[in-house]
């Protein structure tokens, strides 16, 4: 069984338990700190704020006191589309973003991107961010920048990479130790690691030994905008029906029925 999977391509993905997520924002900062994400004095215009991981606040739109809130962390979905044709990868004119068949990770090559922003137009999750400004760190603060992730220059697009540099470092280490594969805990994203509520699980969706493999099959699992055929690799679970429904768009008559998610899966 194990042997079989060593040869199968990996498909890294996440399962985020929205029942556990508290909206504390630790994942957002864990991501910024890991990936040298810049910041500016005013970040309150969320349409200009680079947050690879962004926590959305959902409400059930019911009046007081029936109101409910659910937080939804949104990293890059690393969409597979059909056969790796994620919405963004297929549109990039300069092959600056790529779908890795080996890991299922959608990469972004900062030095090749020339900033046409077509990928941003293509992404329905708003997971892609443009560097409208030069990244500037206050004097002295550039000391904490990590050499594993290059700071991005102005005029290009960036996004969540599932901390791909961690994968590379883990693979390097495994290689030195003469191993071919990685253990589940050897490669974890920064947000997964930081979440104080333990809401995020990360691993190889193709590997039955990884926790995500089982979690994604939960009857409460759903993905965002599955109906568009983006085939994302980030799953969410919620015990609340309205939250699961908020994951996609439904016509009025569909909404009343129990939604059969498998219908929209490819």
């Amino acid at each position: 069984m194990k042997k079989e999977h060593e040869h199968k391509a990996k498909k890294y993905g996440m399962v985020i338990d929205l029942d556990k997520c508290t909206g504390c924002g630790a994942c957002m900062v864990a991501c910024m700190a890991e990936n040298n994400v810049p910041f500016r004095a005013d970040e309150t215009d969320k349409l200009l704020s680079i947050t690879w991981m962004r926590v959305y606040k959902l409400t059930n739109a019911m009046p007081f006191p029936k109101t409910e809130i659910c937080y939804l962390p949104r990293p890059c979905m690393h969409c597979e589309g059909s056969h790796g044709h994620s919405p963004c990868v297929s549109v990039c004119p300069a092959t600056a973003t790529d779908y890795s068949e080996a890991t299922g990770i959608v990469s972004q090559i900062y030095t090749r991107c020339f900033g046409c922003r077509y990928c941003m137009a293509a992404c329905p999750y708003h997971a892609r961010y443009f560097n409208w400004w030069d990244p500037v760190w206050p004097e002295g603060m550039e000391k904490y920048l990590s050499p594993n992730v290059s700071p991005r220059m102005r005029g290009i697009v960036e996004k969540c990479s599932f901390c791909f540099h961690r994968y590379q470092l883990a693979m390097e280490k495994a290689h030195y130790e003469g191993r071919h594969g990685l253990e589940e805990d050897e490669y974890q994203t920064s947000c997964t690691q930081a979440c104080p509520a333990g809401a995020i699980t990360f691993g190889d969706l193709n590997n039955p030994h990884h926790a995500v493999y089982k979690l994604k099959k939960s009857e409460n699992a759903f993905r965002l905008l599955e109906r568009l055929g983006t085939n994302p690799k980030v799953y969410y679970t919620s015990s609340r029906k309205w939250v699961r429904q908020a994951g996609d768009n439904y016509l009025r008559d569909e909404k009343d029925n129990v939604i059969d998610k498998s219908k929209f899966r490819n």
Binding site: C24, G25, A26, M28, V29, A30, A33, E34, K143, Y144, L145, S146, P147, S190, Q193, A194, C195, P196, A197, G198
Partner: peptide
């Protein structure tokens, strides 16, 4: 000699790897 990232300490009796947003910053 540069500190580049603060992470939660695994196995610590208080937080076991978890960390809050302030600690991360």
């Amino acid at each position: 000699d540069r500190a580049i990232k603060i992470e939660g300490m695994k196995g610590h009796p208080v937080n076991d790897g978890g960390i809050c947003i302030l600690g991360l910053s």
